[in-house]
């Protein structure tokens, strides 16, 4: 008799993974075509500064919060920054994740110690909980939030929690790992079809913003 959940795990690691990556790549290409095929009309007003350097500048300067904002909204801003870096390190620098990437795409890089990733996962999940509380409590965030905002929060938190549980052998290992893999696959597949698309389009949005300012000889 196979271990409970083993079939599910095997499917998730095989067919499920292929479907998720396929949907993700299809969706991403579709979305990028939808955006960039629209193009932009050439601006015929004589420039006062350089658009390209302005755009590139804003891609990087926007990593730093607007002046005074961190003091006004510390949980949201500091939490937001740590969350994004935490997620980045967990997804791309956990050794088993690098192995999956190597198997799929043939590229790899050195990982970070599992103990560090383990601690980072606790921190990242804790921050996600704080960010959820902020979303529920802060009048502006609550006002702006719709179903999708809460849905993508759940979509992000489940792989983190199940991954932590699997690594630390909390609960039935195979089932927990299957949930981890499946939830991560759902997250990956839905990136292009939800607000998670910002994981890619932040670059172009910042670029356009900075380029328009740069052209006018100002900064953004």
């Amino acid at each position: 008799m196979t271990e409970p959940g083993m079939d599910l795990l095997m499917w998730a690691r095989g067919t499920g993974f292929q479907i998720a990556i396929g949907v993700f790549l299809f969706g991403l290409v579709l979305r990028l075509i939808e955006i960039f095929a629209l193009r932009r009309k050439a601006d015929v007003a004589p420039p006062k500064g350089d658009a390209v350097s302005g755009g590139l500048r804003t891609i990087f300067t926007r990593f730093v919060p607007a002046p005074g904002f961190a003091a006004l909204l510390p949980a949201q801003i500091i939490g937001g920054v740590i969350f994004h870096f935490g997620l980045l390190f967990i997804v791309f620098f956990f050794v088993p994740h690098i192995a999956v990437i190597k198997d799929t795409f043939g590229v790899s890089w050195p990982g970070i110690s599992s103990a560090v990733i383990n601690a980072l996962t606790v921190l990242t999940v804790a921050i996600l909980v704080v960010l959820l509380v902020v979303r529920l409590k802060h009048p502006v965030r609550r006002y702006l939030s719709d179903f999708q905002d809460y849905f993508i929060w759940a979509l992000t938190v489940v792989p983190l929690v199940s991954g932590y549980m699997a690594f630390n052998a909390v609960g039935p290992y195979t089932i927990v790992l299957a949930i981890h893999v499946l939830s991560a696959e759902l997250l990956i597949a839905l990136i292009p079809f939800t607000r998670l698309t910002h994981a890619f389009t932040w670059v172009s949005s910042r670029y356009y913003n900075g380029a328009f300012a740069g052209r006018k000889g100002t900064m953004s």
């Binding site: 955006i35 629209l38 904002f69 909204l73 702006l144 607000r195 172009s204 949005s205 356009y208 328009f212």
Partner: peptide, 22 residues
Amino acid sequence: QVDASVASYMSSCIHCGLCAQA
């Protein structure tokens, strides 16, 4: 009015609400 910049902006907003403070 929709061009590549608008489509990029609309794809990027995650309802963080920081703009309110500005």
